[in-house]
């Protein structure tokens, strides 16, 4: 188990969370504002969150499972891959869990793949299955 310190320590098999939270209208509006998603469904008649917000669940899980922070190097996000099973509802308790499925080296760089499952907390309805790939350092290992 490589949780408990830095994000750069994470290894295959590590489980992060689960954590529970409730998506707020403020979060949806401001996230969409920051990303120029100005459509009415995200700014005025807000009932669902954009599925891309699941990416920030990764940071939520990192903060919980890796309290010492990023580690000696900055991560670079490489791939976002989200299957949307159902809309992310606003104002409903949600549960998120991360599982590190792979850690490997390619051309001198360390890659980490984490699967993040976002479900409703009450009835465990799947909302998003997200596969996130990061490179742990831009600089190649010597």
């Amino acid at each position: 188990m490589a949780t408990g310190r830095y994000v750069t320590d994470l290894d295959q098999g590590d489980v992060l969370g689960p954590l529970e939270y409730t998506m707020s209208k403020f979060v949806v509006r401001e996230y969409c504002h920051a990303n120029e998603l100005h459509q009415d469904c995200f700014q005025n008649d807000v009932k669902v969150a954009p599925p891309t917000l699941v990416h920030l669940d990764k940071l939520r899980l990192y903060k919980h499972a890796c309290p010492a922070g990023t580690g000696p190097t900055a991560r670079v996000h490489y791939e976002y891959d989200a299957t949307i099973h159902a809309p992310i509802p606003v104002g409903v308790p949600l549960r998120v869990k991360g599982t590190v499925t792979e850690r490997y080296e390619k051309r001198g760089r360390q890659y980490v793949i984490m699967q993040i499952d976002l479900n409703t907390a009450q009835d465990d309805k799947p909302l998003i299955t997200y596969r996130d790939t990061v490179i742990l350092a831009y600089k190649k290992a010597d």
Binding site: N35, E36, L37, H38, Q39, C41, F42, V48, A49, P50, P51, T52, E79, Y80, D81, A82, T83, I84, H85, A86, P87
Partner: peptide, 19 residues
């Protein structure tokens, strides 16, 4: 995603996949 929502409406954020 914004482009997809412009074209398909909120359905683009409701069911499917984006990679």
């Amino acid at each position: 995603l914004s482009l997809l929502v412009d074209v398909f409406g909120v359905d683009a954020a409701s069911k499917g996949r984006l990679s």
